[in-house]
């Protein structure tokens, strides 16, 4: 489904990503790990089309990233690391706000269902009154409004309690299994990565993550 071929990215003659090639299939959850500054966020931004690679080719299905950027963006659900919601609005208003600007129209009931599926039930509550875990769930729910086929998550569970983390993990697994969504997930929590991801891509020269994951019998792809 997602094919990356010979991907390079350099900033001011400094190579961040060096000749990355990998394939990710439908319904697969792939973890993206590496030490800080290794290039995880850069790769995620390139895959999200918000940054151009220096060279290389990326295909989403049959669509080329360079030629069909606008159409590819319709298929991407991006969950930023920072909680990107309107704090002053309620959960309902946030969902409605982004639905209005979205590619796909959804009814209020459908929007509510997305939230309920991940146990985000405080529909009428202003976001500023929600817990960190609830906000993270809403952050994810907004990115799913337009039914993306590729979900890119940048540390979506950072700083939240274990229960919320498990609920988000379970929800993502359901999305991959039942709705065939392809998910790329960055995290520093190796337990979470091992539990949730089918495969893991490690980036960076440090072999710490690679060794750790191989010991846990995970399929690892290293760059």
């Amino acid at each position: 489904m997602l094919k990356v071929e010979g991907l390079n990215k350099s900033f001011h003659k400094k190579t961040i990503l060096d000749n990355l090639s990998f394939n990710i299939n439908h319904g697969e959850i792939v973890g993206l790990v590496g030490e800080n500054g290794a290039g995880k966020s850069t790769l995620l931004q390139i895959l999200a089309t918000t940054m151009k690679p220096t060279s290389g080719e990326i295909l989403l299905g049959q669509r080329n990233y360079q030629k069909d950027k606008a159409k590819i963006r319709k298929q991407i659900g991006f969950v930023p690391q920072d909680i990107a919601v309107w704090e002053q609005l309620t959960v309902e208003e946030n969902m409605t706000f982004f639905e209005k600007l979205s590619w796909i129209k959804k009814s209020n009931a459908q929007l509510k269902e997305i939230c309920q599926d991940m146990n985000l039930d405080r529909w009428k509550e202003p976001v500023k009154n929600l817990s960190g875990g609830m906000k993270r769930k809403l952050n994810l729910a907004i990115s799913l409004i337009h039914d993306p086929s590729l979900l890119l998550l940048d540390e979506p569970t950072v700083g939240i309690d274990l229960k919320s983390r498990k609920e988000i993990g379970a929800y993502l697994r359901k999305q991959a299994t039942d709705h065939n969504k392809t998910i790329i997930y960055t995290s520093h929590d190796m337990d979470e990565i091992q539990e949730l991801c089918d495969r893991v891509i490690t980036i960076g020269e440090d072999s710490f993550y690679k060794n750790l994951l191989q010991e846990a019998d995970k399929e690892v792809l290293s760059f």
């Binding site: 089309t49 918000t50 963006r73 991006f78 990107a84 979205s102 907004i142 990115s143 337009h146």
Partner: peptide, 18 residues
């Protein structure tokens, strides 16, 4: 400057139009 600005590339309505 709001955190939500990051969502605009993935929306039907583009930021300048909005």
């Amino acid at each position: 400057k709001a955190s939500v600005a990051v969502r605009f590339p993935f929306m039907k309505i583009k930021y300048p139009t909005y």
